[in-house]
Amino acid sequence: MRFTLSCVGKMKAGAEKDLLERYLDRARKTGRSLGVTDVRVVELAESRAQRPEDRKTEEATALMATVAGAARIVVLDENGKNLTSPDFSQKLENWKDQGVSDVVFAIGGADGHGAELIARADLKLALGAMTWPHQIARILLAEQIYRAMTIQSGHPYHRA
């Protein structure tokens, strides 16, 4: 199973990027024993369209292009489902048990996701009721992927 964080926008060098890389590295290492072959980030250019709807459509098209055929798509959306860390871990484990080979987590641009991507999503996920900068959302998501793997492996990182 592979996890891809497909993100609109580029993360600049600095403390946030370092923290993101730390969680991605931890997830890769922990995931090996669980059948996770990669955890990666794909960064896409922000749309330059003038209208928000056009930007969302262009960015949704770019995000969809990162999705392999039968991949599960998780869109980060403020109106999405709030899952506990154990529930999130269980969702990923269930997909793995079903033979899902790829999960793509889509983090859209400032205007949100286009209708095409929302319609194709297998899960709409919220990282809580607050609004987070997209760079921090990447870090939170990478940490939760790592946490999910520690839950699955019985590692004491997650303490309920």
Rank of each mutant, 00 (worst) to 15 (best):
T66M: 09
T61I: 10
N79S: 10
T131N: 02
F105N: 01
E93M: 13
A15C: 04
A129W: 05
L24Q: 11
A110N: 02
V42A: 09
E58W: 03
S101C: 06
A60Q: 04
G112A: 09
V104E: 05
D97S: 13
D97A: 13
K91W: 14
D122T: 05
R32F: 05
T131E: 00
A126C: 11
Q50C: 03
S33P: 02
G80K: 02
A71I: 12
A121P: 00
A119S: 13
N94H: 12
G112M: 10
C7M: 15
L24T: 06
L123T: 00
P133W: 12
R26G: 06
L83E: 02
A45R: 15
E58V: 06
S85Y: 07
T61K: 14
L117S: 00
L63T: 05
E46T: 10
A15P: 07
T84A: 09
G114P: 00
E93R: 14
A49R: 05
E78F: 07
A119Y: 04
R26M: 12
S85C: 03
L117Q: 03
I118C: 07
P133Q: 05
R51Y: 10
L127W: 09
Y23Q: 01
E93Y: 07
G69S: 15
D25M: 11
M64C: 10
K91E: 08
R40E: 13
Q90A: 15
L20T: 05
K56V: 04
D87W: 01
R32E: 15
G9R: 08
I107N: 01
A15N: 05
I107L: 15
A70T: 14
A126N: 03
A27K: 05
T131F: 02
V8D: 00
S6D: 06
I118D: 04
S85G: 01
R51W: 10
E58I: 06
A60R: 03
G9M: 12
V8L: 14
N79E: 10
L92N: 05
S89V: 05
N79T: 11
D18K: 13
V67N: 03
V41P: 06
I73K: 07
T57E: 15
S101A: 11
Q90C: 09
D111G: 01
D54N: 10
R55E: 00
N82I: 09
S47L: 06
R22V: 10
A45Q: 11
A70L: 09
G80M: 04
L34T: 04
V39M: 07
V39I: 12
M64A: 14
V74I: 15
D38I: 08
M11R: 14
P52K: 12
D38S: 13
R40Q: 14
V36G: 08
S89K: 07
E53I: 03
L44V: 09
V103D: 03
R40F: 07
V42I: 15
L83M: 14
R26V: 05
P86D: 02
A45T: 07
P86F: 10
E21I: 05
